[in-house]
Simulated scan of single mutants.
Amino acid sequence: MATNNVVKKYTSRIIWSGILFGIGIAAFIDETVFHQLLHWHHFYDKSTKEIGLVSDGFFHAFSWFATIGGLFLFADLRRRQILQFKPWFGGIFLGIGMFQLYDGTIQHKLMRIHQIRYVENILMYDLIWNIIAVVLIILGLFLTVRSRNKAGG
C-alpha cells in the first residue's frame, strides 16, 4: 500500500481520473436517454434533424474519449497501487455534476443550442436538472476535500 506522501502526490491525478470518467458517463447517459430513447433533443437543435443526428454522433464520441481517458488514468493509478476510491468517486460526482451544470446553464440557456425538453413550461425541467447538478458537485467536493484532508494535504 502507498504511503501518505505518495497518496498526497497523486490525489489530483486520482480526482482527475474520476472527473473525466464522470464527464464521460454523464454525457453517455444524457445522449443515450435524452437524445436516443426519449427523443427530447439533439446536441445541436438549430438546424435540420440530420445535422442534429450528426452532432449527437460527435457528442457520443466525446463521451467515450472522456470515459476512456479517465479509465487510462485509473489503470495507471491501479498499476502503481495508489488508487484511492474516495477521491476517485468524489471526482466522478464532480465530473457528472460539472457536466450537467455546464449543459444546463451554458448550452441550454446561454448558447441555446438545445433545451432539455421542448415543452411550454421548461422551468421545472431546468430547476430539477440544475439542482441535481449542484447536489452532485457538493457531494463530489465533500468526498475530495475529505480525502485530501485525510491524506495530509
Score class of each variant (00 low, 15 high):
His42Lys: 08
Phe58Asn: 11
Phe28Lys: 14
Ile92Met: 00
Ser63Asn: 02
Pro87Tyr: 02
Leu38Ala: 10
Leu83Gly: 05
Trp40Cys: 02
His42Met: 09
Trp64Gly: 04
Gly69Ser: 07
Leu38Met: 12
Val33Thr: 11
Ser63Met: 04
Pro87Leu: 05
Ala61Pro: 05
Arg80Met: 04
Gly70Ala: 12
Gln84Lys: 01
Ile51Tyr: 05
Phe72Pro: 00
Phe74Asn: 06
Phe43Ser: 00
Leu71Ser: 08
Glu50Gln: 14
Trp64Ser: 09
Arg78Met: 07
Phe43Val: 00
Thr32Leu: 15
Phe72Asn: 08
Lys46Ser: 09
Tyr44Gly: 00
Trp64Lys: 10
Asp56Lys: 04
Gln81Asn: 14
Arg80Ser: 08
Thr32Asn: 12
Gln81Glu: 13
Phe62Ile: 14
Glu31Gly: 15
Leu53Trp: 11
Ala66Gly: 07
Phe59Trp: 13
Lys49Tyr: 15
Phe28Ala: 14
Lys86Phe: 01
Ile51Ala: 07
Asp45Leu: 04
Ser63His: 02
Phe59Ser: 07
Asp76Leu: 02
Ile92Asp: 01
Ile51Asn: 06
Leu53Pro: 04
Asp76Tyr: 12
His35Ile: 05
Tyr44His: 03
Arg80Cys: 00
Gly57Pro: 07
Gln84Ile: 04
Phe43Cys: 08
Ile29Thr: 14
Phe34Cys: 10
Ala26Met: 12
His60Tyr: 06
Ala66Leu: 03
Asp76Cys: 11
His39Lys: 13
Asp56His: 02
Phe43Trp: 08
Gln84Ser: 07
Gly70Thr: 10
Gly57Trp: 09
Val33Asp: 10
Thr48Arg: 09
Gln81Ser: 14
Glu31Trp: 15
His39Phe: 13
Gly69Trp: 02
Pro87Asn: 00
Gly70Glu: 05
Leu71Lys: 04
Ala66Glu: 01
Trp64Ile: 09
Phe34Trp: 09
Ile29Gly: 11
Ala27Leu: 13
Tyr44Ala: 06
Lys49Met: 12
Thr67Cys: 03
Ser63Ala: 12
Trp64His: 12
Leu83Asp: 00
Gln36Thr: 13
Arg80His: 05
Thr32Val: 15
His42Tyr: 12
